[in-house]
Design a protein around this nucleic acid. Structure first.
Lengths: 238, 238
DNA sequence: CCCTTATAGTTGTCTATACCAGTTTAAATT
DNA sequence: AATTTAAACTGGTATAGACAACTATAAGGG
């Protein structure tokens, strides 16, 4: 425990508690040391301990009972199959190598439906069209629409790499959630050519609108996946 | 603002802020008064104001930017689109009337893939095949497999009604979560006849394995939806 | 033996203050 | 006028206490 600068004390206490839980020192249902005890052990004020514990309660790792103590919660459902992922992350999870070919990168006036989904009165969007490859085979064709106002300095280079990475670590934006619509379609001529399948073959069409933690929508993606190679998997809770 | 007993001060401050937001005094993107200003206005310490604001930040109503201020978030997505629903519930949410026609109700030795997904060494399952209608039109054909061991007294009558209702309220089982695989296919002859579409038309095929809160799988459902009438919608978080 | 009553331990709420780090604005300087 | 600097904000972290509300346990009285 470093008392001075490096990391906030409450954060170090969180890490200590999480380590003890993962190592089994504190098991599900066990009471952890009381706030006063922890504050004495780490030589910090009780409010600081409370901040650490409160964060973990919010994360569902601990729960408090007034007058009794603070306890370790049952471990949550196996990591709910990380929900919102980029194509690159998704393929990695499936153990496949991914690649991308940029078809076009334009700035345009937002089409009606896109503007409404991105809540833009009027405004320009980037339109990024890419073909996604998995294990060297065309898997999907994908068009992303992003507001220029949010990402003023987007370049082709960034788009070629991991855009989520760029947004989260360079621009310091936090990606929060998305709503997705999935339907089956027959491939049209264009999609057929791009995905090297016959027109009329079934494809999986996914339209996703993603949001930042402040609730602002930042991306609409329309993807078309080859149905013979791609299966969409998700976990849901009741 | 009552200074003494009735409700905690931080709670009253939360209510004040929520009211101002819902009345439009503070709109999405607006900065709310600073913590120091609020603490002076309500004659409480800044830490108390922080507790109110922190709760609302955790709820996604507000967001903080260090050095700048605290702001009202865009109003969140309408109800997080209840995840795991039955066909009946799903159609109701979409504002459609639903109906079901039972095609067959059998007890059989579990097929290989079903047995493995239900974690049955060997054992019998109910196989329930149904056509689902929405607004009087065929929407999907669906086959459910359920272990006889878990639902020894399942009857045709129950299956005709709401099975989730029966499980949760009669058998007192708690349905917890499910994993779903979604893919696009071309309808085969059978599906075409049952759904009144041409063979080869695109359909959405969904396979779902559902679990109780104790982790035991209790149902595998294979559904085929008409692509021209059904779109699968889900919310996901990062 | 059962029931009541202290008592000690827990979280819940709150105070008044302090300093830090980042952002914006206004003043001072060039 | 443009640039730099300083001041005045903002939220982030932390202290050292205090009393209230609730729970479990141990002591005492019937």
């Amino acid at each position: 425990m470093k008392k001075n600068h490096p990391l906030p004390m409450y954060y170090q206490i969180e890490e200590f508690l999480k380590r003890e839980i993962s190592e089994g020192t504190f098991q599900a249902g066990d009471m952890i040391p009381s706030e006063r005890e922890l504050s004495e052990r780490f030589q910090v004020s009780r409010m600081t301990v409370r901040q650490a514990v409160s964060n973990m309660v919010n994360d569902g790792i601990l729960y408090r009972e007034k007058g009794r103590g603070t306890f370790v919660a049952e471990k949550k459902i196996e990591q709910p199959l990380k929900g919102l992922t980029s194509f690159t992350e998704d393929m990695k999870l499936r153990g496949m190598t991914s690649a991308t070919r940029l078809l076009s990168f334009d700035v345009m006036q937002a089409p009606q439906d896109i503007a409404s989904k991105l809540k833009l009165e009027e405004g320009e969007v980037y339109a990024v069209k890419r073909i996604r490859f998995a294990d060297r085979q065309a898997m999907a064709v994908e068009t992303s629409f992003l507001p220029v106002s949010l990402l003023p300095d987007l370049t082709e280079d960034i788009v070629q790499g991991s855009m989520y990475e760029y947004m989260e670590h360079v621009l310091d934006l936090t990606i929060s959630h998305a709503r997705q619509e999935i339907e089956a379609r027959a491939a049209d001529e264009n999609e057929g050519t791009e995905l090297q399948i016959e027109a009329g073959a079934p494809v999986l069409h996914i339209e996703r609108c993603s949001y930042l933690d402040n609730g602002i929508p930042f991306e609409v993606v329309k993807s078309t996946y080859r149905a013979d190679r791609y299966k969409f998997i998700s976990d849901i809770v009741r």
